[in-house]
Computed example of a mutant assay.
Amino acid sequence: MNFSSQQIEAITQRVLRELNSRGIAVASARPPNGKSQAASKSETNGLPLNEKVITEESLVAAAAAGRTISVAAGAIITPSGHDYIRRHSITISSTVARKTASSTGTVITVGECSAATSAASTAGWTALTAGCERDAASKARELMGSPVVCCGGVASITACLLNRSEKVRAAVVTLQTDVPALTAAMQPNVLCLESAWAFSQLLKLLRGHSAGNGTPASWKELSR
């Protein structure tokens, strides 16, 4: 069953109200002096938000507009939270993702792609930014051995640049692609996506994706 963003937000708000009625705090409130407690700390790695559910209200309370925020691994950002992040130019720090990158992977975004950055942070993946498709391909080639997803720009250009190397097997993935079937048949070690993917779709992809085993054998199956 598919839910719209409005339905997801309504369900989230009902859950939050139920938790609050039971005395379980989800979003941190702003201290009486008008400045969030987290804001008074060092923000070298981003303003820390420790809630498991990040809503627009918690972002407003933390005075996150225009800043970099760091969310806990596994945290869920609601649709209203994503809208607030986009409207107020908030950057999601990948500090948490780097700690677990050895067992997960890396998302490389071409330009601005807040949904991909947020999904990477939630899934525990590292997030990197590239200036163009060529830059994304260059960064991806340095990360072989763990899953890599490139998001944004023109996915076919990024994949074409990557596939010039026999050590890389990049595949363009759309919203209609059967990713498990693609992985089983081609064993790609890089997936290239357009920027149209929503946060929930990206998160599902990252949590279910693993790279192809080893280095492609010079595309030998093409000559069979």
Results as ranks from 00 to 15, higher is better:
Met1Gln: 11
Asn2Glu: 12
Phe3His: 10
Ser4Gln: 05
Gln6His: 09
Ile8Phe: 01
Glu9Asp: 01
Thr12Gly: 04
Leu16Met: 05
Arg17Ile: 07
Leu19Pro: 01
Gly23Val: 00
Gly23Gln: 09
Ile24Gly: 03
Ala27Thr: 09
Ala27Leu: 01
Ala27Val: 08
Ala29Asp: 10
Pro31Ala: 13
Gly34Phe: 06
Lys35Asp: 07
Ala38Glu: 06
Ser40Glu: 15
Lys41Ser: 10
Ser42Asp: 14
Thr44Gly: 10
Leu49Ala: 05
Ile54Cys: 06
Leu59Lys: 02
Val60Thr: 12
Ala61Trp: 03
Ala63Pro: 02
Gly66Leu: 04
Thr68Ile: 03
Ser70Lys: 12
Thr78Lys: 06
Pro79Gln: 07
Ser89Asn: 15
Ile90Val: 15
Ile90Asn: 06
Ile92Met: 14
Ser93Met: 02
Thr95Ser: 13
Ala97Glu: 09
Ala97Val: 02
Thr100Pro: 00
Gly105Cys: 05
Gly105His: 04
Val107Gln: 11
Thr109Val: 15
Val110Ser: 03
Ser114Leu: 13
Thr117Ala: 14
Thr117Asp: 15
Ser118Glu: 13
Ser121Gly: 11
Ala127Gly: 03
Ala130Tyr: 08
Gly131Asn: 10
Glu133Thr: 01
Arg134Pro: 00
Arg134Thr: 11
Arg134Ile: 08
Ser138Tyr: 09
Ala140Pro: 05
Ala140Leu: 03
Arg141Ala: 15
Ser146Lys: 13
Ser146Ala: 13
Ser146Ile: 13
Pro147Trp: 02
Pro147Glu: 05
Pro147His: 04
Pro147Val: 12
Val148Tyr: 09
Val154Ile: 12
Ala155Asn: 06
Ser156Val: 11
Ser156Ala: 14
Ile157Asp: 00
Ile157Leu: 12
Thr158Phe: 00
Val168Phe: 07
Thr174His: 13
Leu175Trp: 07
Thr177Asn: 06
Asp178Val: 02
Asp178Lys: 05
Pro180Phe: 02
Val190Gly: 05
Leu193Asp: 09
Ala196Pro: 03
Ala198Leu: 12
Gln201Leu: 11
Leu206Asp: 08
Leu206Asn: 08
Gly208Glu: 13
His209Gly: 03
Lys220Val: 13
Ser223His: 15
Arg224Met: 08
